[in-house]
Design a protein around this nucleic acid. Structure first.
Lengths: 192, 192
DNA sequence: TACAAATTAGGACAAATGTCCTAATTTATA
DNA sequence: TATAAATTAGGACATTTGTCCTAATTTGTA
């Protein structure tokens, strides 16, 4: 039900990512959805309402993706690799527009926007997912630290991927991330 | 000479960083500089011209800073540490607005702005600076790779510093960066 | 001092923005 | 089918935007 509303959210999601929130107007969204600007008001009273709907939509999408990784990943290690490999899967978009999460949170920071905490939840989803894997790997004390470390690296790669469009760099950094993971696991085994 | 022009650039530099380029208007800058909006046109014909002037100004500032690090750093290793420590020195601003370079390049990407390559030169300055240090450390083949790796890490930390405002995380990541540096130097010595 | 150049203030201008209203049309329901 | 509800189109509205013009003032110089 409410197909138009969902289509608005779907298109706004894309446009906010590709062109930024501030730089996307009602008119831009309406033009793609092919509805009149007036009709808009019936579904969303303000632009902020659209943003909130988009963020909520992204949270649901992300949860689904993480649940799938959780279900399909054979072990914590391969589930972590699923995360790292977004950088390769979404390489084309990341080169053009950066990371959808990182760029949104940064923009909302500069706009001093009330929805920043909500957007931040996207980061929390990934961080919690990763931390859970590290706990399962036996890194009880360092799980959060390691999760943030990987999140940090993927954000750094996304920024430089956007800046330099260098595929070799991206592939190499993905490799060093998996090596880093192998290393801490190896060190853990030595300690036992 | 041309004090007003320089003041416009100085203020625009700040406002573009704090509020974003798109989200900063002529009126915003004029209000802070305390000149009439009309007078603006005498110094800069378009907003893009201000942006270009701001980028040029940042390039000059950055060059000066790197030259100072180059001159004052006792060895390549300590010069690299100077770079890493921006994350601590500029911690307050990074938490609020992210990295000035990364956020500008990302925004210009989304705006599909003609000045993105110019802004990217800021990244090149840091990357070249770092690569030079790694060459001096004897990593002839891996100098660029290592430079990009450190740049990537500092960008990642900046994004998450903005998102989470977590001082402990920042300090810890700075520590792991210095440890990473120590490690590759140690490994190099073992190989000799 | 006299004159030219540089700088300034103030506002005009069209276009775009987010918001909101009304009237028509479609859809669903009794 | 008749009626209410949901959805739509089209445009009004004040505000803000970047851009640009003109006339006044300040500054520097011969």
């Amino acid at each position: 039900m409410n197909k138009t509303r969902e289509e608005i959210i779907y298109i706004a999601d894309q446009l906010f990512y590709e062109n930024g929130y501030e730089n996307t107007s009602f008119a831009d969204i309406a033009a793609v959805v092919k509805i009149s600007r007036g009709n808009f008001y019936h579904h969303f009273k303000t632009k902020d309402e659209i943003l909130n709907a988009v963020i909520e939509h992204r949270i649901i999408k992300t949860r689904k993706m993480l649940d799938m990784w959780q279900a399909n990943g054979e072990n914590p290690s391969s589930r972590i690799i699923s995360f790292v490999h977004i950088l390769i899967t979404n390489q084309a978009n990341i080169k053009l527009y950066g990371c959808p999460v990182g760029t949104l949170v940064l923009e909302l920071s500069k706009l001093d926007h009330a929805s920043k905490p909500e957007a931040n939840k996207l980061f929390n989803l990934f961080s919690d997912y990763l931390a859970r894997q590290f706990v399962e790997l036996g890194f009880k004390d360092k799980a959060n630290e390691y999760a943030m470390h990987l999140l940090m690296r993927s954000q750094g790669v996304a920024v430089l991927a956007n800046a330099f469009h260098d595929e070799v760099f991206i592939n190499h950094e993905v490799k060093t991330m998996t090596e880093w993971l192998d290393n801490i696991i190896e060190e853990r085994d030595i300690c036992l």
